[in-house]
Design a protein around this nucleic acid. Structure first.
Length: 979
DNA sequence: CAAATCACG
DNA sequence: GACGTACGTGATTTGC
């Protein structure tokens, strides 16, 4: 074989940084030997998606052409693929021209809910036709026929002739056609239909349809009919969504059987709905049925791809300023990989800047004077009645604190549409006993009226970070459900796209700015800041109404926009199955809190303080002067200037680095002061961050500590924890571990800690398909030992440690220098280790290559459950930025999938425990791969297997892993003892 | 308000 | 051959 490790390394490096376009130019046009393969491009659907994904580019004349650009590159790529065995021999673009179709005769409301196309997309429709003609490709469009029906008819006609067909679309209605293999005319090999989603670069075949809908394509029509579709306004059956529809069809076989069986079902809301809406279901079935026998406006043979004449295409490209495409055309280069044409506002990567587009739905501008201040019961009742009728209401509570466990409610705002919002003040003026209290609906009465609305299954409650409102309202006895959250919608669509601070990226102010072009009033505008800040309940009602109702209005508008995008861009899976159902679960965990032993912490604090003081004295004596040890600046000056030790300066600030690695090195060289400083630092950290701060965090009412989890805190989909952060409580050192002893169960209860063992490595073994690692996990082996065995042929303490280091290095995206630093070797030797690893586990190298290729092309990575993380620097010209993005992109699918899995476990946990009769088990904390519960001592034996099963099976049924998920469980009176 | 440091997975 | 020295977080302290 003669492997050359060095050249392999170079290969990896190249693929990690080079642009990915490799396609050759001007391909031979015809393939007489090949079985005909017809590509039918669903042009209308494509440009809607391209519009949302691409930045608001304009051509030299100022016409918006972002979607046209996306469309052009897509066609280019398809037309270039004709060499592929899977590529097209025939191609046509189908456009939706129909304003009316037979479906409107069946159901006048069909597509009635569809908003008009965005303002700056409209002028692009005719350009799409121009673009298609520029490629000399046929455009098919017919009055009274929808694109779907034309596509179905052409697909049928082609398969009948024995052609294969690929439908370029991701429309779910068209998925009904997937796998259709019509009997051919006279003994020719049958043709088959699949779909291609060019944005995700994914083929959709029968298994993908089954994955998405739980039924094969021939039954998809029945499922779609039951679940309905809000975009096309297909009614379906009220209360039945995709999951229920899937279950029913799988149970009874088809729609008619479901409807016929309904009267025999056990009494439930669903049964009533099935009976009541049976006719609507039948009508829906007709609406989703594709018409496969349309007259074909142009015969199939005319679709043959015959090469693309350059001149008309060049004309088109130059007219619209697509200069880099033009260059490629001239140079005869292949498909474009990076849209850096035109006058992009700033983005280098088109995908990176979507979501900042300019156009708005046709809504009136936000009008602060349009809002109503509700001060009477009659007016409140009127709003509640309208909210019931609307089935969706944006809600925002105004309070006295950011801590939802301590906040006092000042008022509630509602919105039912643009500029259709109100504020209901409840506790204004109560802070100042001398001020005159404005007229308001009495709190108790108002809450009693709002409760049925907020608890109604039939009305969606929409919020921006609604977890907060859930807790505030829960504390006054209202259990809000079902909910929608615009912050989480934004996160599921745009994680990683945000410019500045992570927390701000999905904040309301920034969302209003990007999606609505609207600048909201800020809290500090009306309440002030710092010492002069006043509570919201002290704000005069007119101002308060403007501020509060505006938030609800904006939230409602954002919901409309983001919901639409979610469907268009494929975010529904992660939002509906994982993040949205998690909201109430997290809210519950936060409310549960965890008991902390204040005396234990105080005792530790005192001990630490004593040791800190004596260490401080020693250090000062060694230094010969007193100084602030906590100041890296002063410490650096002492160590490196005064004592003359060698050590490097840090680039930007020109300051000496004195961090752990530097001090440890000095200690190793025999500088006793370094050790003392390290000890001092460790204890100071523990004291200030933990033993002191945690005492402050104990809620006076509950006597417990209630963290706040952010669902949008980490780009990969992990949770983050703040106020206090309970995800970084010490465990790695003995001293630190004592702090965990302070987290305790109530008397009679115990804490139970359950964690996924090596979940990220297991996922890497699965996702990269590494047989020896999968085998090791299946057998319950020590994974690092197995790695050492594979790489070095023997397991010693050294080889195992090295194997462990590289296993983690792989998860994080590797560089030879980084690994060298960790292994204590030089870069050459580290490179040899990397090469050896890739040689033994070639799947890992392939995974890295494929992941990066995909991210470069699309701008985002995806987890096994469809969570996207965007990387705006993935094609950056700055090597630092780019390589940083590459490392993050390698890690994100693994870390993110792990996050998805534990979130799924959390969503299922309480129902599973309830089913097992374990209603006294409380879920308290999540620490990335660990869940902490509190439960009566007597319930441990019963709860343990339930918790283990839910966690181990959390990926199912959506994803079937090829490795088992190992769970380790411990119990004890304290969190420390439960490990 | 940014930088440096260090706690966790 | 240079680049910089692993992924993802949050809290505290110092010092401008």
């Amino acid at each position: 074989m003669g492997h050359d490790f060095r050249s392999r390394a170079c290969y990896l490096k190249t693929i990690m940084t080079a642009p990915s376009d490799t396609a050759a130019a001007d391909k031979p046009a015809t393939h007489p030997d090949r079985k005909p393969h017809l590509y039918l491009v669903d042009g209308s659907a494509y440009i809607f998606r391209a519009y949302h994904r691409l930045p608001p580019l304009t051509n030299p004349e100022g016409t918006p052409v972002g979607a046209v650009y996306g469309y052009t590159t897509m066609l280019w790529k398809l037309a270039q693929d004709l060499d592929d065995a899977e590529g097209p021999t025939h191609l046509a673009v189908i456009l939706d021209k129909a304003s009316q179709s037979f479906r409107h005769d069946l159901y006048p409301e069909y597509k009635a809910n569809r908003p008009p196309p965005p303002e700056d997309l409209r002028p692009q429709f005719p350009l799409i036709r121009d673009a298609t003609r520029a490629f000399s490709l046929p455009v098919i469009e017919e009055e009274m026929l929808e694109a779907d029906d034309l596509i179905a008819s052409y697909a049928r006609a082609a398969t009948r002739k024995g052609w294969d067909v690929t439908i370029v679309s991701s429309d779910k209605d068209l998925m009904q056609l997937v796998g259709t293999c019509t009997d051919p005319d006279d003994g020719v090999e049958p043709g088959c239909v699949d779909m291609l989603d060019t944005m995700k670069n994914a083929r959709i075949e029968i298994p993908e349809v089954v994955e998405k809908f739980g039924v094969p394509p021939e039954k998809l029509g029945d499922v779609l009919a039951l679940m309905g579709d809000s975009v096309d306004n297909i009614p379906g059956v009220r209360g039945i969504g995709p999951k229920t529809a899937e279950k029913l069809i799988n149970e009874y076989g088809d729609l008619e059987s479901v409807l016929n069986a309904a009267p025999e079902m056990k009494k439930s809301k669903m049964r009533e709905n099935l009976i009541e809406h049976a006719e609507m279901a039948r009508l829906s079935r007709q609406l989703v049925q594709l018409k496969e026998d349309c007259d074909l406006p142009m015969p199939l043979e005319k679709f043959a791809l015959d090469g693309i004449p350059k001149e008309p295409l060049a004309d088109f490209l130059s007219t619209h300023g697509f200069t880099s495409l033009l260059k490629r055309l001239g140079a005869g280069a292949g498909s474009p990989s990076r849209p850096n044409d035109l006058n992009p506002a700033k983005p280098q990567n088109a995908a990176a800047d979507a979501g900042t587009r300019q156009s708005l739905p046709e809504w009136p501008a936000v009008d602060l004077d349009s809002y109503e201040c509700v001060t009477t019961l009659d007016r409140l009742d009127a709003w509640i009645e309208r909210a019931f009728a609307a089935h969706a209401v944006a809600v925002d509570t105004e309070t006295s604190s950011l801590d939802s466990m301590q906040a006092e409610m000042a008022g509630i705002s509602l919105a039912l549409g643009p500029n259709d919002a109100c504020y209901i003040p409840l506790a204004h003026g109560s802070d100042d006993m001398f001020a005159e209290k404005p007229e308001q609906v009495p709190v108790a009465e108002a809450l009693a009226r709002l409760k049925p609305l907020f608890e109604s299954d039939a009305v969606l409650k929409i919020g921006q970070n609604i977890k907060y409102d859930l807790t505030v309202l829960n504390r006054v006895g209202i259990t809000v459900a079902p909910v929608e959250d615009t912050m989480i919608l934004s996160f599921d669509l745009d994680a990683g796209r945000g410019g500045g601070g992570i927390g701000q990226a999905h904040g309301m102010d920034s969302l209003a700015e990007t999606h609505l072009g609207h600048t909201t009033m800020t809290f500090k505008d009306i309440c002030g800041t710092g010492k002069k800040a006043i509570p919201f309940s002290a704000v005069p009602l007119d101002k308060a109404t403007q501020y509060a109702a505006e938030d609800a209005d904006v939230t409602w508008r954002l919901w409309k926009i983001l919901r639409q995008r979610l469907a268009d861009e494929g975010g529904t899976r992660i939002y509906e199955n994982v993040d949205r159902p998690l909201i109430p679960v997290i809210a519950m965990m936060e409310r549960n809190g965890i008991k902390v032993d204040r005396e234990h912490l105080a005792r530790l604090s005192a001990e630490f303080a004593e040791q800190i003081a004596s260490l401080e004295a020693e250090v000062h004596e060694m230094a010969g002067e007193t100084f602030s040890i906590g100041s890296p600046k002063q410490l650096g000056d002492i160590l490196f200037d005064k004592m003359g030790l060698k050590g490097g300066k840090k680039g930007k600030s020109g300051q000496f680095s004195t961090d752990q690695t530097v001090l440890e090195k000095l200690a190793g060289e025999g500088v006793p002061m370094a050790n003392k400083v390290l000890e001092w630092r460790g204890l100071s950290k523990l004291r200030s961050t933990y033993t002191e701060a945690l005492q402050q965090a104990i809620n006076p009412e509950t006597g417990r500590v209630h963290t706040s989890y952010s669902l949008v805190g980490a780009q990969t989909g992990r949770l983050s924890s703040t106020d206090p952060n309970l995800q970084n409580i010490p465990i790695r050192t003995e001293t630190g571990r004592q702090i965990r002893e302070a987290f305790v169960a109530e008397p009679g209860n115990v804490l139970l800690a359950a964690d996924y063992s090596q979940i990220e490595l297991r996922l890497a073994a699965h996702m990269a398909d590494v047989p020896p690692l999968k085998e090791a996990f299946a057998n319950g082996e020590d994974i690092h030992a197995r790695t050492a065995q594979e790489m070095y042929g023997e397991v010693t303490r050294d080889t195992r440690a090295q194997a462990k280091t590289i296993n983690f290095a792989i998860l994080y995206g590797i560089s030879r220098w980084g690994l060298a630093g960790r292994l204590g070797t030089d870069a050459d030797e580290a490179q040899a280790v990397i090469d050896r690893y890739f040689e033994r586990f070639p799947g890992i190298q392939k995974y890295i290559v494929h992941t990066l290729e995909k991210v470069r092309e699309t701008g985002y990575s995806e987890t096994l459950f469809g969570r996207k993380t965007h990387f705006r620097n993935i094609n950056s010209k700055n090597p630092n930025e780019r390589q940083g993005a590459e490392r993050a992109a390698i890690n994100a699918p693994i870390q993110g999938t792990s996050a998805d899995i534990i979130k799924r476990a959390m969503v299922r946990m309480m129902p599973a425990l309830h089913e097992a009769g374990l209603d006294n088990v409380k879920m308290l904390l999540q620490v990335h791969d660990e869940l902490v519960f509190e439960l009566p001592e007597g319930d441990v034996d019963a709860a343990r297997p339930v918790i283990e099963r839910v966690m181990a099976e959390a990926a199912l049924p959506s994803v079937e892993l090829s490795v088992p998920l190992g769970i380790e469980i411990g119990t004890g009176h304290s969190w420390g003892a439960a490990h």
